[in-house]
Amino acid sequence: MTLDLWPPLSLIRSTLGHAGETPAGDAPPAAAAAAAAQPSDASLLMPLTELARRREAVAARAFPARWAPGRLVSVLHEGRLLGVLLDKCLHGNLWRGWMAASEADWASAYDVLLEPGDEPFEPMFGLIQTWNVLNLEQRPQLCARVLGELSATRLAAVRAVHDEWAVQQVLPIAPEPGRIALRTAGGVFTVLSGTPLGVDDPRADYQGLYLDAAARLAAPLHASTEPGGLSPPAAAATTGGGDWWSRLVGWFRADRVVRPALALLALVVVVQNAALLRSGGEEEEVRFRALPGAAAPAAAGEQLLLRWKPATDMADAQALLAAAGAEVMGGPDAQGRWRLRLAGGDAVQGRALLAASPLVESVEPP
């Protein structure tokens, strides 16, 4: 299987610290290497401008340094920056997560590419390798920085893809290295991913390089009876079985006490919209995380963007929404805002009730 996937495997191997192990036949052709070494200024201007814009957005967001589920962190290891998406705290300073990289061409069906709705995030770590689980101890030597954060819904989608990998679920997608597209995960979510690996697939060597990098970075998982102290295979087994509802709840509640209100409100949104994926085609899948179409019944009524105050209790939030006659349509977005529809009673009174509540940080029109 001869393909021109970018960047070349030899460059990835060198970046991950295997420069001396590059097979002679793996190096790019001399002409291609020379051309890559002398790019025109015009060809670099647009991608460099976009890279600068995205990194400025990350810096402006000023993510908190505290580790939490769904946060994308960079760590310094063996003189190289590596990316990790945090899944959950096992106990103490020991966390479980997935390696994050940037090589979209090498994506498999169990890689999740972050999308514009996930911004801001560091572009170097926009590919989440759900097949590459590691346990990482939070320690000063890692010089860790938080460079992105996924919403509760998106983190649940990544967990769903990981569970598919854990049970080696057969996907009705033909192997095609270098191709990425939207697909359904867990029967509920849409994710942007690659295709399954085929025979003599070059992506197998790519995965081997990152598995080795994760093994060198990972902290050993200590035997523990504390909550969350499961090894990755055992944890996957506990979420892989059961009915659809149990698995869906598990994807949202995997981090236990962290962000419970946001996670369970997101769960309500997913359940309300699950029918779009189960009954529709590609158009409905693409619209899953967007607004319903103009002809949909849910489009009637005034819409608002609401941001909850930190540590808002789920039961209190649900009671307030019910009192205001508001329904959750989607979210949260990059600013932590939920899209609501005022469907019952007096919309003006409902909006005033939300704005006056001590649970609400802000409420505004879209």
Rank of each mutant, 00 (worst) to 15 (best):
A33L: 14
P297E: 14
C143H: 13
A107H: 09
I180E: 05
L11Q: 15
Q38K: 12
W95C: 04
E364G: 07
R259K: 09
W251N: 11
A181F: 01
D333T: 10
R287S: 14
A181H: 01
G178T: 08
V269Y: 00
L16V: 00
P172W: 00
Q38W: 06
L276H: 11
E21D: 14
E164Q: 10
A347W: 05
A59L: 07
L248S: 07
L86W: 05
A181T: 00
G178F: 05
G17S: 02
L209S: 09
L182Q: 13
L16F: 00
P172G: 00
P202F: 09
A326G: 12
A109D: 11
P260E: 05
S74T: 15
R253F: 03
L82A: 08
R13Y: 01
D118P: 14
A315P: 03
L182C: 11
A319H: 09
P232K: 15
R179G: 02
R159M: 08
S362T: 15
L147E: 12
A30S: 06
G250D: 12
A65C: 02
V270G: 01
V158G: 14
V73N: 02
L320E: 05
V269G: 04
M1W: 01
P233F: 10
P233H: 12
G198F: 09
D26T: 06
L209I: 13
V158K: 15
L76F: 04
V170H: 01
G126R: 13
L217Q: 08
A60C: 06
E149M: 04
G198R: 09
R341V: 14
V360T: 13
A323S: 13
F288T: 11
E364A: 15
A237G: 04
V328D: 13
V84H: 02
R259P: 03
S357T: 07
A166N: 06
E285M: 12
A68Q: 03
C89P: 05
R80T: 13
D163I: 11
I12T: 13
S362A: 14
G280I: 04
L82R: 08
G83I: 11
V75T: 11
L11I: 10
G281M: 03
A204I: 10
D346C: 10
L265G: 01
W338S: 13
P175W: 06
A311H: 04
L113G: 14
G330T: 13
A60V: 09
L304Q: 09
W67C: 03
G126T: 07
W6H: 09
A42E: 14
A19W: 06
S279H: 08
P120C: 12
H91P: 02
L85A: 05
D87P: 06
R337I: 11
A324W: 02
A343M: 01
A33G: 15
L72G: 01
E327P: 10
L276A: 14
A290K: 15
A27T: 04
A263E: 02
A24M: 01
W95T: 06
A36Q: 03
F125D: 07
